[in-house]
């Protein structure tokens, strides 16, 4: 590892320090690691088996998975079958998803999650196992259609993911304050329509603004709620009674 590469990694950690929302963290990670083939990030603590889908959302710190996959993952309780999640408690070393294939060859539930993830261009990935201060098992996954990683990249990803997870927990600690979760009227209105299943274009028509404007309000609402996508923003806003 050259001194220059280390400086680059440390510089990246300082950029992470300056991010103020999970969205920003996700964007920064995806930009930095695009050339490793990483297209999605997902991190959180592992819910107890049998935790209802609504509460599972609360375990997610960042998630850029396609909405359709995220919904299916939650509603079908895939977290309890996903081999990358089940492997978390067994190791402290980062592992590549493809290393898990043989271990779960006889497990239909695990195979189904992996195959279906492939349909959403989440075929390849690496997961960094973590444990929070209060003993919760956690993980940070970086994934894509095909990762182009060198074994030497792993220590760097291990460091970055561990640090980013800590930063995300700090951000969450700040966003649960009622101050941060106060939505502007237009943000709340856009989110309310989103909860009704309307598209950006439809919301724009109802609110008399452009699709771009809708995107702006929803993005801002997501940031305030400390969430990473529309589904999660709606879920959190419902739970906090900000929309109905």
């Amino acid at each position: 590892m050259s001194r220059k590469a280390l400086d680059q990694t440390l510089g990246f950690l300082r950029s992470l320090d300056r991010t103020a929302s999970t969205d920003e963290v996700a964007r920064l990670l995806l930009t930095e690691f695009a050339d490793l083939g990483i297209a999605h990030v997902m991190a959180g603590t592992v819910p107890q088996r049998g935790t209802p889908a609504r509460q599972q959302q609360g375990h997610v710190l960042v998630n850029t998975f396609p909405d359709a996959w995220g919904r299916r993952y939650l509603t079908r309780g895939y977290a309890f079958h996903d081999p990358t999640v089940r492997h978390l408690g067994l190791t402290t070393a980062p592992f590549a998803w493809r290393e898990l294939g043989p271990r779960f060859a006889d497990d239909a539930g695990a195979r189904r999650v992996m195959n279906e993830a492939g349909d959403f261009q989440l075929r390849d990935g690496i997961t960094i196992p973590l444990m929070t201060l209060d003993g919760g098992v956690a993980g940070f996954s970086l994934s894509g259609e095909r990762l182009a990683m060198d074994p030497a990249d792993r220590p760097m990803l291990h460091l970055v993911a561990t640090y980013a997870f800590g930063h995300l927990l700090r951000l969450r600690g700040q966003t649960v304050s009622p101050e941060a979760a106060r939505l502007a009227p237009r943000e709340r209105e856009a989110l309310q329509w989103a909860a009704e299943g309307k598209t950006d274009w439809e919301i724009g028509e109802v609110m008399g603004i452009s699709t771009h404007g809708v995107d702006f309000h929803l993005r801002s609402a997501r940031t305030k709620l400390g969430t990473t996508n529309r589904t999660q923003a709606v879920a959190v806003a419902l739970r906090r009674g900000l929309i109905h």
Binding site: M1, L6, T9, L10, L13, T92, P129, L130, M131, T132, L133, P155, M156, L159, T162, Y163, F165, G166, H167, L169, R170
Partner: peptide, 18 residues
């Protein structure tokens, strides 16, 4: 792994190497 706890304890952590 403990780096996470250091960050969670609100230290400002500066790694010295990989």
């Amino acid at each position: 792994l403990y780096l996470l706890h250091v960050v969670q304890l609100h230290f400002r952590a500066h790694p010295l190497g990989l």
